[in-house]
Write a protein that binds this DNA or RNA. Structure first.
Length: 253
DNA sequence: CGTTTTTGACCCGCGC
DNA sequence: GCGCGGGTCAAAAACG
């Protein structure tokens, strides 16, 4: 992004306020019309530029997502623990494999299809509930070393028939974001489609998730800065209040 | 009274 | 072998 500062010309005209006081000469009106057209063109250009920048950012995000997907295997090696890597070696063709032979003491199922979903919640909301249309039974909670927020462990309520598990923990970077990690695939239809929270991000790539969580604070700060600039620009404009007042009275009467 | 949640204990893999 | 940390179990408590 280049220069982020800009000024919004509200295209206000003091003449409009005198409209009932004296007749305005045609030349003045023509001149004003021409000026407004120019301003309109200028605004259109600004809008086009903004939308171009938005599209370019969106493309960039998609590129990053694809890039990380390609290198998923390498990245996983960096992120996942040795334990997880060992588990992965038993996982073939996205299926559940019982490794009873490999671990006779404690037979258990290893799941694949690990996906992570980030959900924005209200800061006052202290629950660890991610509405995803499925019913879950909480079977544990643990405070982990790298995050002060407790991690909640859930099993699908159809267990043991359905082997899906999920972990829900608040983000270290932003406590209002819930990070839900799903392991496995449901072998039954979704009980309820109602009240499903729209995720901020849904990825199978842990590296992309990390990057997303790092960027989210930076981006929100940039957006806040932009809004502040716009607000400041509007408030600095001397005829802004007058224009708003005129517009409101126009609507009322 | 059956189901769900809570929470301390336990298990297990890993690093030193 | 020991300690640490993440994951799971299961008894007790809470809830509807």
């Amino acid at each position: 992004m280049g220069n982020k500062s800009f000024f919004i010309d509200l295209n206000t005209n003091p003449l409009l306020h005198n409209i009932n006081r004296s007749p305005i000469p045609r030349e003045t009106l023509d001149e004003e019309l021409s000026r407004m057209r120019k301003e309109n063109k200028k605004l259109e250009t600004t809008l086009t530029r903004l939308s171009e920048k938005y599209n370019s950012l969106q493309t960039h995000i998609i590129e990053l997502q694809q890039k990380y997907s390609i290198h998923e295997e390498d990245n996983s090696k960096l992120i996942l623990s040795r334990k997880r890597k060992a588990e992965e070696e038993y996982c073939v063709n996205n299926s559940y494999i019982n490794i009873e032979e490999a671990s006779p003491k404690r037979p258990r199922e290893i799941t694949t299809n690990i996906s992570t979903v980030c959900v924005k919640t209200s800061p006052s909301d202290q629950t660890s509930v991610v509405k995803d249309g499925y019913n879950w039974r909480k079977y544990g909670q643990k405070v982990t070393r790298d995050n002060p927020s407790p991690r909640a462990y859930f099993k699908c309520s159809f267990a043991p028939t359905c082997p899906v598990k999920k972990k829900v923990q608040r983000s270290v970077k932003d406590a209002s974001i819930l990070v839900a990690t799903y392991e496995g695939e449901h072998n039954h239809p979704q009980p309820s489609q109602a009240e499903i929270t729209v995720p901020l991000v849904n990825t199978t790539d842990p590296t992309f998730l990390n990057k997303f969580m790092e960027d989210i604070n930076t981006n929100s700060l940039q957006q806040q800065h932009l809004v502040e600039q716009m607000a400041s620009s509007l408030s600095k404009n001397p005829s802004f209040a007058a224009t708003v007042a005129t517009a409101i009275s126009g609507l009322l009467f």
